[in-house]
Computed example of a mutant assay.
Amino acid sequence: MLVIALVAGVALWFAKPWAPDVVVVDPGPGGTRVTDQGLLANYYPVPGSAAPGILLLGGSEGGISVYADQQAQLLRDEGYSTLALSYFGGPDQPAAMESLPLETFDTALAYLAAQPQVDRDRMGVIGSSKGGEASLLVASRHPELKSVVGMVPSSVVWQGMDLQQPWRMVSIGSTWSADGQQVPYLPFGDFRGGDLVQLYQAGLDQLAQHQDAIIPIENAGAPILLVCGESDTMWPSCEMSRQVADRAQANGGPEVTVLAYADAGHFAAGPPVSTDNDFYNSLGEYGGSVAGNAAARAENWPQILAYLQRTLGS
């Protein structure tokens, strides 16, 4: 029995059924793979004269997902030269969200600004989930950016995660680092089961003791658009979005607009998903109903595009 248990344990270790598959999709039509300066990204330039540039950041799935890549292509088709960046999980990249260097985003923005298809004076960042957390951090470090979109974002820097080896979670510090030092972070709370949002909510309950973990959004120079789902079961994206707006207002920061949807969750934001899309029936997986998330996306994507047009042009 001991041998059987050992063999089963080894098989489980290599299979890792709890760990999501990290993919780095090949670029689609009109896109190119970027590996310069240590980056890993898919770049979709707008043909012709210099267009606004957008840095696109996915979430805790890591790599460059099919959906992030498709979104980059949609943005290119709307007139924005877009760089979809893998900031962890790809080949030769960290496997865990642990002390990930914010300098990766600095390098990505510099690369984007140097491209002939990009007007360096009209650049922005869009991020979803952990990428939404990153997008607000990037905005606070780059006041020259003209446009910032956070989809189901965070108001704070969170403790990191290792989805490949979840038993390490208790020993992981900050998700991010800068100049080789961990960025101050908010630890997870005491998780007693239930939806994952309760873990994050318990952390937010201790925010008064970790004020240095709050993202200094008042340092951003661009008006900010945040989209969230009130029924998010991944983390409290609407509560954190309102915290971003409140801090910006209290500290003389930029205008922050929050689009919140009652019957939507962690998939509340982004391009519309048709009923025949394989992803459609998964829209309610992390809160809200399938129909509620679909309706939210159908409503907020045109507003995101209108916001980009207002802040960047095209």
Rank of each mutant, 00 (worst) to 15 (best):
residue 72 A to R: 01
residue 72 A to I: 02
residue 73 Q to V: 10
residue 73 Q to C: 04
residue 73 Q to N: 11
residue 75 L to R: 11
residue 75 L to T: 13
residue 75 L to G: 08
residue 76 R to V: 10
residue 77 D to F: 08
residue 77 D to I: 00
residue 78 E to M: 04
residue 78 E to T: 02
residue 78 E to I: 03
residue 79 G to A: 06
residue 80 Y to K: 04
residue 82 T to G: 03
residue 82 T to C: 01
residue 83 L to M: 04
residue 84 A to N: 12
residue 85 L to I: 01
residue 87 Y to L: 07
residue 88 F to S: 13
residue 88 F to E: 09
residue 89 G to R: 14
residue 91 P to E: 15
residue 92 D to G: 06
residue 93 Q to C: 08
residue 93 Q to S: 06
residue 95 A to W: 01
residue 96 A to K: 14
residue 97 M to V: 11
residue 97 M to A: 14
residue 97 M to T: 04
residue 100 L to A: 12
residue 100 L to H: 12
residue 100 L to N: 15
residue 101 P to C: 07
residue 101 P to F: 13
residue 102 L to F: 08
residue 103 E to V: 13
residue 103 E to T: 14
residue 107 T to D: 04
residue 108 A to N: 04
residue 108 A to G: 12
residue 108 A to P: 10
residue 109 L to G: 06
residue 109 L to S: 06
residue 109 L to R: 11
residue 109 L to E: 07
residue 109 L to F: 10
residue 111 Y to E: 00
residue 111 Y to K: 01
residue 112 L to S: 00
residue 112 L to Q: 00
residue 113 A to G: 04
residue 113 A to H: 07
residue 113 A to Q: 11
residue 113 A to I: 01
residue 113 A to D: 12
residue 114 A to S: 13
residue 115 Q to I: 02
residue 115 Q to S: 07
residue 117 Q to E: 12
residue 117 Q to W: 00
residue 118 V to P: 09
residue 118 V to I: 06
residue 120 R to F: 06
residue 120 R to H: 12
residue 120 R to N: 10
residue 120 R to S: 15
residue 120 R to D: 13
residue 121 D to Y: 02
residue 121 D to Q: 05
residue 122 R to V: 00
residue 122 R to P: 02
residue 123 M to V: 12
residue 123 M to I: 14
residue 124 G to Y: 08
residue 124 G to Q: 06
residue 124 G to C: 11
residue 126 I to A: 04
residue 126 I to C: 02
residue 126 I to Y: 14
residue 126 I to S: 02
residue 127 G to D: 07
residue 128 S to L: 06
